[in-house]
C-alpha cells in the first residue's frame, strides 16, 4: 500500500511540477534581439579589462573591472553600500512622489483652465530653464543641509516634465471627443473622469518617465554638494580618497538604478495605456 501511495504522491508532485512549469514558462521566449543589447557593453568591459591590464590606463586613474567589482562586493558584505543605496533611493522616491504630485496638480490646472495657464505657464516655463545646480545654494540657505533641501531639489527636477507633458496633453485632447461629450450632455466631472483624464494619461506617463530620469540627475547634484550619505556622496568621497574604483562603481550603480526605474515606469506605461 505504501508504495502505491508513494507512487501516487510522486505522480501528483510530478503533475504539480508540470503545471507550475506550464504556468511559469514565458509564453513568449526572451527574444534574441533583446540579448543583443548586452553585447556591446560586454565587449566594452572586456576592452576595459585589457586596456588596464596592458598598462594603457594607470590603475590610479581607471581601475580594472574586477577591482571595482571586488570593492563593491566588499562594501555590500560590510553593509556600508546598502546604507548609501537606501538613502539615495529614498530621496529619489520622495522627490518623485512630491514632484509628480505637484506636476499633476499644476498640469491639470493649466491644462483645464486658460486663466491658470496664462497666469502660471510663462513663469513655470522660465523656471524650467534654470540649471539644477543653480538651485543648490539657495536650497541650502533655505532648508539647511538636511533631507528637505535634497528632496525639494529632486522634486523640482521631477516636476517639470510631468507638468509640461500633462498640461499640453490635456490642452491637446481631441476636439472630436469633446464634441461627443457636448452632444450627449456629459457633466463636467464625468467628462474629466471618463474622457479628459484617460485621454491625457499617455502624456502624463511620458512626463513621469522624464521626471524619474531627471530625479536621478538631481539626486547626484544634491548629494555631491551636501551629503554625508548616499550614492552621490560615495562618488565625491571616492574623489577625496583618490579611489577611482569607488567613483567608477558609483557611476555604474547610478546607471543601473536609473535603468531599472525606467524599465519600471515603462512597464507601468504599458499596463495603464492598454489601447492604441
Amino acid at each position: 500500500m505504501a508504495t502505491v501511495e508513494d507512487h501516487d504522491g510522486a505522480t501528483a508532485t510530478g503533475e504539480r511540477l508540470a503545471a507550475w512549469l506550464r504556468d511559469h514558462t514565458p509564453t513568449t521566449p526572451v527574444s534574441p534581439r533583446s540579448v543583443l543589447g548586452f553585447v556591446v557593453p560586454g565587449l566594452l568591459v572586456v576592452c576595459w579589462h585589457f586596456l588596464v591590464a596592458g598598462g594603457v590606463f594607470q590603475p590610479h586613474q581607471l581601475p580594472a573591472p574586477a577591482t571595482v567589482l571586488t570593492t563593491f562586493v566588499a562594501m555590500g558584505a560590510s553593509g556600508e553600500l546598502w546604507g548609501h543605496l537606501s538613502v539615495t533611493i529614498q530621496r529619489v522616491a520622495f522627490g518623485v512622489l512630491f514632484g509628480v504630485s505637484a506636476g499633476i496638480l499644476f498640469g491639470t490646472l493649466t491644462g483645464l483652465f486658460g486663466l491658470a495657464n496664462d497666469l502660471l505657464d510663462p513663469l513655470l516655463q522660465s523656471l524650467k530653464n534654470i540649471p539644477s545646480l543653480a538651485w543648490v545654494p539657495l536650497f541650502l540657505l533655505w532648508f539647511g543641509i538636511g533631507e528637505s533641501a535634497k528632496v525639494t531639489l529632486i522634486a523640482l527636477g521631477a516636476f517639470f516634465p510631468v507638468y509640461l507633458n500633462l498640461s499640453t496633453g490635456i490642452q491637446g485632447i481631441d476636439e472630436d471627443l469633446l464634441e461627443v461629450v457636448e452632444v450627449y450632455d456629459v457633466g463636467r466631472l464625468e467628462t474629466l473622469r471618463r474622457v479628459i483624464f484617460p485621454a491625457a494619461l499617455p502624456s502624463l506617463l511620458v512626463g513621469v518617465r522624464g521626471g524619474v530620469g531627471l530625479a536621478w540627475m538631481f539626486v547626484v547634484a544634491a548629494e555631491l554638494i551636501a551629503a554625508s550619505q548616499g550614492l552621490g556622496f560615495l562618488l565625491s568621497d571616492g574623489r577625496v580618497l583618490a579611489r577611482p574604483d569607488i567613483i567608477v562603481g558609483s557611476i555604474l550603480l547610478f546607471a543601473f538604478l536609473g535603468n531599472l526605474s525606467d524599465i519600471g515606469v515603462k512597464a507601468l506605461q504599458k499596463r495603464l495605456v492598454y489601447w492604441g
Binding site: D176, E179, V183
Partner: peptide, 12 residues
Amino acid sequence: GVVFQDPRLLPW
C-alpha cells in the same frame, strides 16, 4: 443626438 462620419468612440 449625433452620429458623426467617424465613430468617435473613446479608444480606452
